[in-house]
Simulated assay, not measured.
Amino acid sequence: MRSILCFGDSNTHGQVPGGTPLQRYGPAQRWPGVMWRELGPNWHVIEEGLSGRTTVRDDPIEGAHKNGRSYLTPCVQSHMILDLIIIMLGTNDLKARFNQPASEVAMGIGCLIHDIKELTPGPQGTVPEIMVVSPPPMLDDIKEWEPIFSGAQRKSRELALQFEIIADSLEVHFFDAGSVVECDPLDGFHINDRAHEALGVALAQEVEAIGWTRDSE
Rank of each mutant, 00 (worst) to 15 (best):
Ile109Thr: 05
Cys111His: 14
Cys111Glu: 15
Asp115Lys: 12
Ile116Asp: 06
Lys117Thr: 05
Glu118Val: 08
Thr120Arg: 15
Thr120Phe: 02
Gly122Leu: 07
Gln124Tyr: 15
Gln124Ile: 09
Gly125Lys: 10
Thr126Ile: 06
Val127Cys: 09
Glu129Pro: 00
Glu129Gly: 10
Val132Lys: 07
Val132Cys: 11
Val132Asp: 07
Val133Gly: 02
Ser134Trp: 00
Ser134Met: 09
Ser134Pro: 07
Pro135Arg: 09
Leu139Glu: 04
Asp141Cys: 08
Ile142Asp: 09
Glu144Pro: 01
Glu144Phe: 11
Trp145Pro: 07
Ile148Ala: 14
Phe149Leu: 14
Phe149Ser: 03
Ser150Met: 10
Gly151Phe: 11
Ala152Cys: 06
Ala152Ser: 15
Lys155His: 12
Lys155Phe: 10
Ser156Pro: 04
Glu158Pro: 11
Leu159Gly: 09
Ala160Glu: 05
Gln162Gly: 02
Ile165Glu: 13
Ala167Asp: 05
Ser169Gly: 04
Leu170Ala: 10
Val172Thr: 11
His173Leu: 12
Asp176Tyr: 03
Ser179Glu: 11
Val180His: 06
Asp184Ala: 00
Leu186Glu: 14
Asp187Ala: 06
Gly188Met: 04
Gly188Ala: 10
His190Lys: 10
Ile191His: 04
Ile191Val: 07
Asp193Gln: 12
Glu197Gln: 15
Val201Asp: 00
Val201Leu: 11
Leu203Lys: 01
Gln205Val: 01
Gln205Thr: 02
Glu206Val: 04
Val207Glu: 01
Glu208Phe: 13
